[in-house]
Simulated assay, not measured.
Amino acid sequence: MVKNIASYSTLTLTILALLYFSFQSNETIDLSKYSTEGLDYTYTVGSETASLPKTLDSENSFSPYLGKSFVGFKEALAFKESGGDYNSVNTYGYLGKYQFGAETLKMIGIYNPAKFLKNPRLQEKAFIANAARNKWILRRDIKNFVGKRINGIIITESGILAAAHLAGPGSVKKYLRSYGLDNFADGYGTTVHYYMKRFSGYDTSFIKPNQKAKAI
């Protein structure tokens, strides 16, 4: 590129010199034999930029990067549960974006599943309340097992809370205290171990342990 710039500069100076002398001698100079063909005019953007990865798959798609934040945690969990659909009801009757069962809803103060399904704000509150309740129930296990390796994975708080959402805190206790031997699976075959691994390492410090947490 430097060589091309030098060539272009030399040619420009040559043309200017010829024009100067032509004015001095009143002669007509034929410039047709002077050409910039073959010179590279792309001085500030190299051709390697064509190989840079695209940020978006298309102009019409947008996927915010939430990383390991709490919002990233709950949205990733919701996507696994229902595809993020507030109106979802699965074949076992679990409801909403986070797939709550009727009995779990009762424990956090919700007694009308039909109204719950139509209320996205209440579904978000239910997720927070249930996570806070599970964190209180599992507080000793979080203290004793976070950082330990079970079945090839490092146990994290977010993994524990995700698994509790899937299977209930009792099943998580059994998994941890048996060092992975008691590995509950739901009706679709999803295990406590899988959720421990899939949702490992998120920041769930936003959730405060609360034995009496309610969504309402």
Rank of each mutant, 00 (worst) to 15 (best):
18 L>C: 04
10 T>G: 03
98 Y>W: 14
8 Y>I: 09
5 I>G: 04
36 T>Y: 15
12 T>P: 01
98 Y>T: 06
96 G>M: 02
117 L>D: 04
125 K>G: 00
99 Q>C: 05
13 L>S: 13
51 S>E: 09
30 D>R: 06
106 K>E: 13
80 K>E: 13
30 D>I: 02
123 Q>K: 05
52 L>C: 02
78 A>Q: 03
70 F>M: 05
4 N>Y: 10
78 A>K: 05
57 D>G: 13
6 A>T: 07
45 V>G: 01
4 N>F: 08
92 Y>P: 00
20 Y>D: 09
51 S>I: 09
54 K>G: 07
101 G>A: 04
67 G>H: 01
46 G>R: 14
40 D>E: 14
70 F>A: 04
84 G>S: 04
89 V>H: 05
28 T>P: 00
13 L>I: 08
52 L>H: 09
54 K>P: 00
26 N>Q: 13
55 T>R: 14
17 A>C: 06
125 K>M: 09
15 I>P: 01
95 L>Y: 02
93 G>W: 02
99 Q>A: 08
60 N>S: 12
96 G>W: 04
43 Y>V: 10
22 S>T: 05
70 F>W: 14
22 S>A: 13
66 L>M: 10
119 N>P: 00
84 G>T: 02
29 I>V: 13
28 T>S: 12
36 T>Q: 12
101 G>C: 02
6 A>E: 10
108 I>F: 09
49 T>D: 11
7 S>K: 10
7 S>H: 08
56 L>R: 15
12 T>V: 12
80 K>P: 00
100 F>P: 02
55 T>K: 15
96 G>V: 07
80 K>T: 08
52 L>S: 09
4 N>D: 10
56 L>A: 14
73 F>K: 03
110 I>K: 04
57 D>H: 06
72 G>E: 06
13 L>C: 07
37 E>V: 10
51 S>W: 04
56 L>K: 15
76 A>C: 02
100 F>I: 02
50 A>I: 12
17 A>E: 10
37 E>W: 00
108 I>R: 02
61 S>H: 03
110 I>E: 05
16 L>H: 01
61 S>R: 07
12 T>Y: 08
6 A>K: 11
15 I>E: 11
104 T>S: 09
71 V>Q: 15
73 F>Q: 03
78 A>P: 02
95 L>V: 06
42 T>S: 15
119 N>L: 06
27 E>L: 12
89 V>R: 10
108 I>P: 00
76 A>N: 13
75 E>T: 10
90 N>V: 07
93 G>N: 03
34 Y>L: 15
67 G>S: 05
44 T>S: 12
